[in-house]
Amino acid sequence: MAYTPQYGPGTSVVAQNRRNQMNPDHKLEKVRDITDEDIVMVLGHRSPGSAYPTAHPPLAEQQEPDCPMRKLVKPTDGAKAGDRVRYVQFADSMFNAPSQPYQRTYAEMYRFRAIDPGTLSGRQIVECRERDLEQYTKLLVETEMFDPALVSMRGATVHGHSLRLSEDGMQFDALQRCVLAENGVVKYVKDQIGVPLDRAVEIGKPMDAEWLKAHSTIFHSLVGTAYRDDKEYIEYIQRIHTLRTKYGFMPTEE
């Protein structure tokens, strides 16, 4: 019998949004268009139009050992080309940002290949081959997993996820990498590591509170969905904890 992933428990909209983001069969809603060049600028790893720096020759040009694993695992485009490994890191506000650190990691693991995510409380990093990274980042920024005001790309000095929002609705950023312009559009004036950009990169208008509440993947009793109200979710966690306590990591149902 084929395994059917369930992605996660819960009856709330938060739980459903989490499943949607994780499920690769669910088509993420595209909310904005960002050009490839703009993605490259905000990432800050290479100049737009420049060649991809490489860590090794293209696989086709080097003598690959006779390895069954290499035959089994199809390399990504970035791996084929020998790209170096680079990163994108997101800081997600706890005030209903559409995605959140572990949620990002889970969604990326289901949707992307050849990635190395790292999950913390205030940031989530994913590393992979550079040209793969640009594709992945484009998806993460253009779709319902992103909001220009509450999510930002930050290589360092990520402090802000748990702070109150600025009066204009923007998440705190000590470096003010992105700002809300007078026309209501969020513009990156620095790349994710904080180096000033030659030109501002528009990343779109912040989503409204209603949309955010409907698309968020964090429980929040003040601005969103209360965790306590999703009884199925709570019971599921208690069950997991109980089974692990009694049986370790190979639980047997009583």
């Binding site: 913390l120 996820h161 964090i218 965790y227 709570i234």
Partner: peptide
Amino acid sequence: LMHKEGWSRLGF
């Protein structure tokens, strides 16, 4: 476990 699932984040 409950914290991590509720806020989709925990510590470092």
